[in-house]
Computed example of a mutant assay.
Amino acid sequence: MGPMDILPLIFSVTNWTLVLLVLGTFFLAGAVKGVIGLGLPTVAMGLLGLAMAPVQAAALLVVPSMVTNVWQLALGGRFLYLMKRLWPLLAGVFAGTWAAAALMGTGSQPWAVRALGVALVLYAISGLLAFQLRVPVRWERSLGAVVGCTTGVITAATGVFVIPAVPYLQGLGLAKDELVQALGISFTASTLALAAALARGGALGHHEIAASLFALVPAMAGMWAGQYLRSRISPAAFRRGFFTGLGLLGLYLCF
């Protein structure tokens, strides 16, 4: 099943299993993001990886990820301040994604599903252990560039852009609202870099954009549901369940 086959498969009346998988995946992924502020691309890539190649899942992810992340980064009020601190990370993300995509493609290799599984397991472990970096201010530029490049390489290989960017951002000592906005900025940059790499490789044309727009509807519905639930459930317990499930899914994809 090639990337250009996604749209007809989604809208085929003979393939309701895939339709339900896409709808359910993006609703769940949006709900996770609504509750804890992240997780949409990670959940989507992990679950869709059960039924399609990472390059196909990444193409579906572009519009929902872009819209929800732009929404998230717009809510802060510290955009210019954060851009001044994060530009080495963002430049590294673009450089790493483009270089890796040029050398090995974007999630289309035979080992891409296992690489996705490994990325999910590593992210789940860091989340469950509440791993916390402390990044000295004097190291921000050099370490940010390295973290950005590494994140870009992993993004190109798996479509997941949380490792090691999220632990790095959590280690900058940002206030809560600043961290949420910084995550939105980082994820938006990664989505743009991934979309550009997919388009350059011929995996993101008008068919894929249309399919990704289709996926935006359940993602937004899920995000609104998650925001409604956020004040009614324990975020800490939800995070533990989320990372445990993500780790198990990653292990399954590894084998």
Rank of each mutant, 00 (worst) to 15 (best):
G2R: 04
P3S: 14
M4G: 07
M4V: 07
D5E: 15
I10P: 00
I10Y: 15
F11R: 15
T14Q: 14
N15A: 13
W16A: 13
L21E: 13
L21R: 07
L23M: 14
T25Q: 13
F26E: 00
K33R: 15
T42W: 03
V43P: 03
V43E: 02
G46V: 06
L47S: 11
G49L: 03
L50A: 10
M52Y: 05
A53P: 06
Q56E: 15
L60D: 12
M66C: 02
F79Q: 02
Y81K: 10
L89K: 10
F94E: 02
A95N: 08
T97E: 07
A102G: 10
M104P: 00
G105Y: 01
G105S: 03
T106V: 15
W111P: 00
R114Y: 07
A115F: 09
V118R: 02
V121I: 11
Y123N: 05
A124Q: 05
Q132M: 07
G144C: 12
C149W: 06
I154T: 04
G159I: 07
S190H: 06
T191W: 04
L192Y: 04
A193S: 14
L194R: 08
R200L: 14
G201Q: 11
A203K: 05
H206W: 14
A211T: 07
L229E: 00
I233C: 04
I233R: 01
S234V: 00
A236M: 05
A237Q: 11
A237P: 00
R239M: 02
R239G: 01
G241T: 10
G241P: 10
F242I: 02
F243R: 03
L253N: 08
